[in-house]
Structures are given as C-alpha cells and as structure tokens.
Amino acid sequence: MLLTLLLETRPNVQFWPFIVVSFITILSALYVVTSKKPVYSVLALIVTFLSISVHYVMLNAQFLAIVNIIVYAGAIMVLFLFVLMLLNLKKETEPVKHISWGIIASISGLLLLFVLVAALVSIDDYIQPGLDREVGLIKNLGQMLFTKYLVPFELTGILFLSAMVGAVLLGKREKKEELS
C-alpha cells in the first residue's frame, strides 16, 4: 500500500495509534466502496467515521470529534440505514459491472491520487506550524461561531428549512395531479 510505503520511509512516524487507526480507516473505506450489500457498506462507513473521529481527538479537535460522531455516525448514517430498511434493499440489485469500467475508474482515481500526493510531498517546506494548540476546544470554537461566523450560522437556517421542506415535499404521497 502506498501509505505503508510512505510511513516506512518517514523516520518520524513511530506513533502506533496513528498507524492502527489509519489502517482501520482505509480498510473500512475500501469496504464501503467494494461491498456488494448496501447494508454492509453503511456499517463500514460508520466504522470509517468513528475512526476519523479518533483522528480528530488525536488532532486536538475534540469538539469536531463529538460532532462527527453525533451528526454523521449518529444521524446521517442512521438515516441511511433507515432508508435501506424502508426500501428493503438488502439483496443484491446491482448488475454485474463490465470490467473495463472498473479499470477506467481505478485509473482515474489513482491518477488523481498521484497528482494530489505529488502536490503534498514536500509540504513541510511550504507551511509553518502555528503555536496555538487549543483551537479545537469547544470554548474557542463557540466564541468564533457566534461572533465571526454568526451570519453563516444563521444562514444554515435557510439551508435546513429548504432541505426540510424539500424532503417532505418529495417524501409525501400526494394524489394531486401532476404539475408541469
């Protein structure tokens, strides 16, 4: 794997929790993509999110770690599961893919990967670390959120309202004649 190669070549990576958690993240992400059954995909995705949350904790972003678990693993994924159960999609419904399509997809994925990795290779030369290590604490974030980010915070209200109305609109059954 690319990542293990990189890890080995880098002398400063001896922090085993990072390695373990990263492996979990990547493997579960791969499982999401390749699994035949949507339900397993969802479960794997939850695992991915949990492991990403662990990363957040390690990165001193405790607030986001919690939000990630609550919002993603808790809400969004449950929604996914709920819809899956509702639609009864447990059985395999996807047609067999032509192999060439898989090759094309992998090539483009790998290509992008290489380009982006190349952009990141000598990253340490370009950016300097900051000194403030407490940015991820709830207090700091809260203060920012309700001062500088007040406008976008309130605007998310519009977003949610429209999403809610839209979801209800699409979800409800109606007898009314079609509009056009």
Binding site: Y149, V151, P152, L155, T156, I158, L159, S162, A163, V165, G166, A167, L169, L170, E174, E178, L179, S180
Partner: peptide, 24 residues
C-alpha cells in the same frame, strides 16, 4: 464558507424542484 453555503442553498432546493414531477 459563505461561498459554500451559497452554492448549497442555491442547489438543495433545486434538487427537489428537479424531481418535483414525482410520477415521471
């Protein structure tokens, strides 16, 4: 952030509108 929110607020209602003819 505002750009991102703007794009989303612009798009999300439209996803719904595009599918508003539910029977087709």
């Amino acid at each position: 952030v505002m750009m991102f929110l703007g794009i989303e607020i612009l798009s999300i209602p439209l996803y719904v509108l595009a599918g508003a003819n539910k029977k087709y």
